[in-house]
Design a protein around this nucleic acid. Structure first.
Lengths: 339, 339
DNA sequence: CTGTTAGCGCGTTCAC
DNA sequence: GTGAACGCGCTAACAG
């Protein structure tokens, strides 16, 4: 293994000159810089990042804390796209990516310590569910963080939050379906998180603006990306005295499952009953009938998360909250009830 | 930031004693070990991994080189599941995961250097496509590597290859479809990689065992997880003098697309024409009709990759090639032609 | 412009 | 059983 010392000896200069040359220090004339770099190259020099990190106290790398459904993890349909776009952008800016083990989530300090020991410059927190104590501690720390989909009053001004325009998206979706004549829409909500609140607000607002009083019997609690409660919730809704003509599901994934469940009950999707999802998974376009849903821009979410983290690291301020545009995908899973 | 020096001072011992205590050295009596560790804990000590790595020359971490479709990256339907299972297992064994930037793939030495500079213990190579020169160099190096889905004669005995039983899976799939009376099956192959060769072999073998001579006009070249050539290939096949009754697609994703294309042409899937995929994406079960395909066990692939890499790191030998079981998912996208 | 030198935090050898 | 001291490879004063 060749070190800068070896290069210094070989090139007849001192180690600091080599160090400067490698770092493109302005103190050195370009000619020497170039010469030394070429020498290093041909000697097969490889910088020792551990040594640099030890010396400088930082490590030009960021961590990703995937805080999503245990069953999906990094293969989550939505978050994997965000992760990918984030990683690409960070790599382009010469940052390395660390996958942080969920193991370290056990307790608050362990996590923070494990991050500090890696000298990470920042952390991307993908929030499938609410923040735990340990994540809160991380956010409160001096390590720059970006939280995707996990806004919380407590943490604003301590981190940067990024989400889609959930409220607006749901408002638009609901409005579109109301325009098709539906008046009795049920909403199987996801868990009690920020994004859920936003979507419910958008949903209620659209109803009210159409002069419809939300019927509380049409709200039931489901789970995001979890099929276990789908059937049960459908059963509950369909057994109501006044069953809904359209059902909103927490996401596309559960809506896909609903296709099957409803069909087994003898319903024709988009004819006898209408169904809508959320997220806009690409595969939804292949379903028959195509799913009506709200598409989130995962690439943009990931890129924006990266750009925001880069800004945070370099001390540039941004709005604490960034909401990214979504758009309604109009499929055939919602029929028209107009005469 | 508290160091072992601080702990030593506070505890009235020397740094080496602290170092030993923290590393559970057998040289120390348990009592002192415990006492010092407790002190470290309450002082908020965080080990400096850079220093340890500098000192020991290794870094208890592995890299992942995602060498798959540019468009999908880590969000690839298949590889993201492998990645997730791999990461979980490695984390359980206290290894950290590094996402290696595809940027370093530019040239051979850059990659190797970047890996060496991180002191990685090993690398998982997810091969969506054929190895480039730079990856070959990595495999030939002394860094332990695991290659998923990228077997190649040149690299056997220099790395560990892991794949599904592609040949057997395709053999079973084909056999099942032959049993349904199909005699003219077309195969839109993926790119010219190892897994493709295997699948084609399984396909041909099944035909031959049924006394059918493969018709070369029924093989066309497509692309994995790439929709751009699907329509064109379907058109080619359907315009043959003797069009196929069943079409195999490179994967489920392209098969999903085919549903739409064929429907637009007026075909009813699983009635007028039969379709089969490969991979067994979960969402395929929600399509109507359900897709007949071969399911790969992504969790098992990921876990096996991790176990094999761990063995390789610790010097334990394994077979150079491990083929993991698959099974045919029998959907309704293939109809019976039996009388 | 360049060289000398002092650590960064830790593991480890060699004394005691 | 424990401590003193050296050095891993590098950066950044400081000195020339």
């Amino acid at each position: 293994m060749v070190t800068i010392k070896d290069i210094a000896r070989e090139g007849g200069v001192s180690v600091s000159t080599v160090s400067r040359a490698l770092a493109d220090s302005p103190l050195l004339p370009k000619s020497t810089s170039e010469k030394i770099k070429r020498l290093a190259e041909q000697m097969g020099y490889v910088k020792n990042e551990a040594a640099i990190s030890l010396k400088t106290g930082v490590s030009q790398s960021v961590g990703i804390l995937s805080f999503v459904d245990e069953a999906f993890g990094f293969s989550h349909y939505l978050f994997s796209g965000i992760l990918d776009a984030f990683a690409k952008r960070m790599n382009d800016c010469n940052y390395e990516i660390f996958l942080i083990s969920n193991k370290s989530l056990r307790d608050g300090d362990t996590l923070l310590r494990s991050l500090r020991s890696k000298k990470l410059c920042g952390v991307l927190i993908l929030c499938g569910y609410s923040q735990t104590e340990s994540v809160k501690k991380l956010i409160e720390s001096d390590i720059p963080t970006i939280v995707v989909d996990g806004f919380d009053e407590d943490i604003s001004e301590m981190t940067y939050c990024i989400s889609s325009e959930n409220r607006w998206g749901m408002y638009e979706l609901t409005s579109a379906i109301l325009r098709k004549g539906h008046r009795n829409i049920a909403y199987i909500c996801g868990e009690d998180y920020y994004v859920t609140h936003e979507r419910v607000r958008g949903f209620r607002q659209a109803l009210k603006e159409s002069g419809i009083e939300p019927n509380e019997a049409m709200f039931v609690r489901g789970k995001y990306y979890n099929l276990s409660t789908v059937k049960e919730n459908i059963d509950i809704l369909l057994s109501r005295p006044n069953p809904p003509t359209c059902i909103f599901f927490p996401d596309d994934y559960t809506a896909f499952e609903a296709y099957e469940i409803l069909r087994n009950k003898g319903y024709r999707i988009g004819e006898d009953i209408s169904v809508a999802g959320f997220d806009g998974l690409e595969l939804g376009a292949h379903l028959q009938p195509r799913l009506t849903t709200v598409r989130q821009n995962v690439k943009l979410l990931g890129r924006t998360a990266a750009d925001t983290l880069l800004d945070a690291i370099s001390g540039k301020k941004r709005p604490y909250m960034q909401l990214l545009p979504v758009h309604v995908l109009d499929g055939e899973s919602v029929c028209s009830l107009l005469p």
